[in-house]
Design a protein around this nucleic acid. Structure first.
Length: 492
RNA sequence: GGCGGCGUAGCCAAGUGGCUAAGGCGACGGUUUGCAAAACCGUUAUUCGCCGGUUCGAAUCCGGCCGCCGCCUCCA
């Protein structure tokens, strides 16, 4: 069985078959860059990162496109009527492009820390204005759009399958609408693809219809078309964007191209913090930078970015995820359990004797790999995939209890950790900072002085003094661990 | 009100018709340790929001109810 994905369009889990054998074109709705990335971004982009990584693991040549929305649109219902980027630019006395650039860099920085592979192309909406104008022209020419007073609207009534993704029909939407609709529109369901700019609107461009700016939905249609073609294999995004954003993308693209826009629609679920919707007014809005640094009052400590990644993988991408401090702490403990096992295996490899890969171990590794792939093939069941990694940890730790395992067997184990835990899940690193690494050299020297003193006391059976030293070091945030091979330390 | 998603142990979370309801965290007991830590072993859901129904058999399918989350096009 190959990979199966849940397709939001058909509402069924389907076997994944790319349009062109061996190649996958994938487009993911990227962030609007007016603020630092938060937990919601973490869940979304880690989820799609897993999809890209797994497709590549399966041997597909993937082109991964994820846009940066730098022509502002409103994403926050608390602040109506103003472009988020323009608003930020005003309060910070900066050019909107400077705001966009600053938060774009911040976004990549955070995503790098979460170990998300960079998209192959990160197109900016502002860099594709001419293409967007061209699409508007095409839609006008084909009769799917109409111009009113410098704005251009998509004529929903002309596109018969409007609503196929979100399961809405136009008539119901009209009667059910709770807001006043623009008098410029023929039909309340029509949406702007080009908007006339008021003179004080900072971001505006010349067009055949006067100065203006593109409708939000337009950029994704244009950029996916430009880099991936008229029909793409996978389009990803958050569930909250199914309607209207993705629905409108479909309408524009299919009306313009007379071709299916997307074969598989993949939507990930939302996050909550302490069981509530994340929002600035609830004081539970936590950015990734705050989580990495432990500077938010809802968090008891700082969290390793990969522990946050692990929390995301602990649940399914289509399930909602609650970011509570307790959940983060549990993920951190689990993450460290895996890391310490991998580190120990790699340490043992250095001194292990040569030999053949143990037959029983080899068989177990094959079984685990198969189980892992089966889970991932089942609509990316990372929760089960992760449990396979924990099985590998348990089996490995048992094996490490004696010092008899040979080098080749240990290397095979490390290989599977690196492949499944590293390449696919992205929670096993190639290199770990060791206690004695360059970064920690001074720290290592200082701790060792204390360890020597304590071990001297232990030798003299002055345990009260030894325990006192250990307690003080512990209070400073360093844990000591005695073993037959000596005492090691790690940061709590 | 409409559309979509969800409700499984103290917490997080798989499982969507049938072997013992994964896994992680936490807790408790044991091995180990001078004592710890780490690691390992064991215990921790006769039961899957509630009530009915279908079936030889349901957490899993159907109906109803309760609760939670997202979206419902002025701008974006």
């Amino acid at each position: 069985m190959g990979l199966e994905l849940y397709n939001s369009l058909t509402r069924k889990q389907e076997e994944f078959v790319p349009l062109e054998e061996g190649r996958v074109g994938m487009y993911v709705c990227g962030p609007t860059v007016y603020g630092h990335a938060h937990f919601g971004h973490a869940k979304s982009y880690v989820s799609f990162d897993i999809l890209v990584r797994y497709l590549r693991y399966l041997g597909y040549n993937v082109t991964y496109v994820e846009n940066i929305t730098d022509v502002g649109h409103l994403t926050d219902d608390a602040d109506e009527g103003e472009d988020k980027i323009a608003k930020k630019a005003k309060t910070e006395h900066k050019h909107p492009m400077a705001i966009a650039e600053y938060y774009t860099r911040s976004f990549f920085e955070d995503m790098d820390k979460l170990n998300c592979v960079r998209p192959d192309i990160s197109p900016r909406a502002s860099g594709h204005i001419t293409e967007q104008i061209d699409l508007v022209k095409t839609l006008l020419e084909k009769g799917y759009a109409y111009e009113v007073n410098g704005s251009v609207y998509f004529d929903v009534a002309k596109f018969k399958s409007y609503g196929k993704l979100s399961g809405r029909n136009i008539d119901e939407m009209i009667t059910g609408t709770r807001v006043d609709t623009s008098p410029e529109k023929k039909n309340p369901a029509d949406f702007a693809i080009w908007k006339k700019a008021e003179p004080n609107h900072i971001m505006q461009w010349p067009s055949p219809w006067g100065m203006g700016y593109p409708g939000w939905h337009l950029e994704c249609s244009v950029m996916s078309m430009k880099y991936l073609g008229k029909t793409i294999d996978i389009h990803g995004g958050g569930m909250e964007n199914k309607f209207p954003h993705h629905e409108c993308e479909i309408a524009q693209s299919e009306a313009a191209n007379d071709a299916l826009f997307v074969k598989y629609w993949v939507h990930n679920n939302m996050v909550t913090v302490d069981g509530q919707k994340m929002g600035k007014s609830l004081n539970n809005f936590i950015t990734l930078k705050q989580a990495f640094a432990g500077t938010h009052e809802k968090l008891t400590r700082q969290y390793d970015p990969l522990a946050i990644r692990q929390l995301v993988l602990n649940s399914h991408y289509r399930s909602p995820l609650d970011f509570s401090d307790a959940a983060l702490f549990a993920a951190k403990s689990g993450y460290e359990k895996i890391s310490s096992c991998v580190i120990e295996v790699r340490n043992r490899i250095k001194t292990a004797t040569d030999g053949e890969v143990d037959e029983t171990v080899g068989k177990t590794l094959e079984d685990l790999k198969e189980k892992f792939e089966k889970a991932m093939n089942n609509d990316l069941n990372t929760s089960v995939a992760l449990s396979v990694l924990f099985e590998l940890v348990r089996d490995t730790q048992k094996l490490l209890q004696d010092n008899k395992t040979n080098k080749q067997t240990l290397e095979a184990i490390d290989g599977l950790f690196s492949l499944l835990g590293g390449d696919v899940l992205g929670i096993v690193k190639d290199e770990y900072e060791q206690a004695g690494s360059v970064d920690n050299e001074l720290m290592d020297k200082l701790v060792k002085i204390l360890v020597e003193q304590r071990n001297e006391a232990r030798k003299q059976k002055e345990y009260a003094r030894a325990d006192e030293i250990r307690k003080k070091i512990d209070e400073a945030g360093v844990v000591l661990e005695d073993s037959p091979n000596g005492t090691s330390w790690r940061i709590k």
